[in-house]
Design a protein around this nucleic acid. Structure first.
Lengths: 337, 337
DNA sequence: ATCGAGTATGGAAGCGCTTCCATTTCACTG
DNA sequence: CAGTGAAATGGAAGCGCTTCCATACTCGAT
């Protein structure tokens, strides 16, 4: 079952085209430096014998793999896949490919994955995720490759570059929007803030908006749960039950909000009259729900594109002037709040 | 801006541990063949100087990259990302990583991508997608690596292995379900069947269910559009307008169906009394919509896992007995139809 | 003591490319 | 017409590993 070593090599092309091996390499990598006639001869030889270059060998010799590693908590989450998609697109234009990994949510798991990824010598690395173990950071720094961190703008000591928006600012802005519309008793639904820095930041933003107006946040308004439509519905019910007079709920994710809107339909609660609902992400469904969903738009694709560009620019020898990019956000006011 | 060649190499570890370079390689790849004491010494040396193996060099020498290439039309589509996610998970367990590419929907584009991917010498390849150009097929065959095609069970000449469900059978089953419930005028919404084989298969399945009962399909019942919530809503309205007495609509995708359900809410159409709605995919939202959505469940994760296993088994020297795996589907009967 | 069969280890030869440098050719200058 | 520089080409030396083979040593059976 041994994999047979019968590849067509560059030297075979060279012999066929009656040129030196080096010339074949040039045709592939620096076509401008080869005479037109020679070039054609080589290209034809490549065609004829069906030569497929071996980039593994090339990478070893040149010390560049043209691979960018990307690590996200879960590939399945559309929130990440949109970023990844845009990044892959941008990279492909310059001959780079994506090595994809789901880091899981634990620091140790991530550390192991990163170690294995670095062994593949990617030319750059994109990582969405919060805290890294000190070992991970050290490893990444030592690697010497351009690195983009994403997930939140606020990083105490960025390893290298950062592309994101501020979860804090976005949550604060939405909460302020709700407060301005005279909602006062506002629930907040997010992920476990202990496990997830971004959730924590959103919750902080929520609280900050209240504080700026000198208002108190009732601890009963805060609810942490896992992501899902049903979880959103359940959260809404739980919050209303334990908080008499609740006027609005800010869901830190549109999936929860959409689930909650369904619950309102089932129970005959009128939105936003009985209860106002706000979301986060501007998921495709947000403009179609009944009623349509007020939410925070974040440009996920933009994060991917900008990250790719930053890495590519550095690889192309440019000095990156601003290594921390804020892609911003936007409050999308619709019917639900 | 030259990338400095200052990696720690295996030979450095060897010298520090006072062993031969080969022994270090063994510690990493066949630990059992090294004496315990020596092994510890080597591991410690690795720790101390922070050695990160260079898999590029290893791959060149061993002719195995431990990389599996995966090509999907779009990474962003949750339908694919679920498969990819499961596949990555399964592969990681055996030390393999995923090289990810979005092939676009054109054959030429795909061909270029595959050529570039093969140059990276992946040990296996997963591809979701229908028609490949003859050149693509030839290239893939010549590569000699295990290949899994997915997307639909029906492939005239599978390149190698296939893991999927039958779009035809699934659509036929759902249509039959609707017919059994005495819906007779049934709309069908899918993607452009000219561009997408899977859409065509689903449409064929739809028609086949009618034929089996000797019933006619009115051409006005068929509507092709692009994917999206709004598109689903619009499709529903268009179908009802042009088909008096329409009793049900089968949407070949839950996103359309969910969008259509919202439209029913807006217009006050009662589902399934005024109009029955069925979907496809069993998207997470399907169990939460109002009313809940009758749909076809397909195990996307299972496709990823099985594909990975098939490839891994072949790489581990096993002979795969059944190179065409049907993961099946399931009709999930809920309230909407 | 002798042999054979493990077990542990290391040296040397590549894997298929890129890069460095040398060489050749040729048009153009003074 | 020698002198010069640019353009085109190729030889040789690695890139950091794995694999093949040889060697040294151990142990129990003869």
């Amino acid at each position: 079952m041994e994999k047979t070593r019968d590849q067509v090599r560059m030297i075979d092309v060279a012999r066929r085209a009656k040129v030196g091996l080096v010339t074949v390499s040039r045709v592939l990598n620096e076509p401008g430096k080869v005479a037109e006639e020679t070039r054609q001869r080589v290209l034809q030889a490549i065609q004829e014998i069906g030569y497929v270059p071996n980039l593994v060998a090339g990478s070893l010799a040149s010390n560049r793999t043209h691979v960018i590693a990307a690590i996200v908590p879960t590939i399945g989450n559309p929130v990440f896949s949109e970023t990844i998609d845009a990044m892959a697109q941008e990279l492909r234009g310059e001959g780079y490919h994506l090595l994809l990994g789901n880091g899981g949510h634990s620091g140790r798991e991530e550390e192991g994955l990163i170690a294995k990824f670095l062994a593949r010598r990617p030319d750059g690395l994109f990582i969405h995720g919060g805290r890294h173990t000190p070992e991970t950071c050290a490893m990444l720094r030592r690697s010497g490759i351009p690195i983009v961190e994403s997930g939140d703008l606020r990083r105490p000591e960025p390893i290298d570059m950062v592309v994101s928006y501020s979860n804090f600012a976005a949550a604060e802005a939405m909460t302020t929007y709700l407060l301005e519309r005279n909602y006062r008793r506002i629930g907040f639904v997010g992920r476990a803030s202990k496990e997830n820095d971004r959730s924590l930041e959103r919750q902080r933003g929520f609280r900050a908006a209240f504080e700026r107006l000198g208002l108190e946040v009732d601890p009963r308004w805060i609810l942490e749960t896992s992501l899902g439509y049903r979880e959103g519905a359940e959260a809404l019910v739980a919050l209303r039950e334990r908080t008499p007079g609740l006027e609005a709920v800010f869901f830190a994710g549109d999936v929860w909000a959409a689930g909650a809107l369904y619950e309102c339909l089932r129970r005959g609660w009128s939105v936003p009259t009985d209860i106002a609902i706000a979301g986060f992400d501007d998921h495709a469904v947000a403009s179609q729900t009944v009623p349509t969903l007020t939410t925070v738009r974040v440009l996920r694709g933009e994060i991917g594109r900008r990250s790719a560009r930053l890495i590519l620019d550095r690889l192309n020898g440019g000095t990156v002037d601003e290594p921390i990019i804020d892609v911003g956000f936007e409050i999308i006011a619709r019917e639900s709040a």
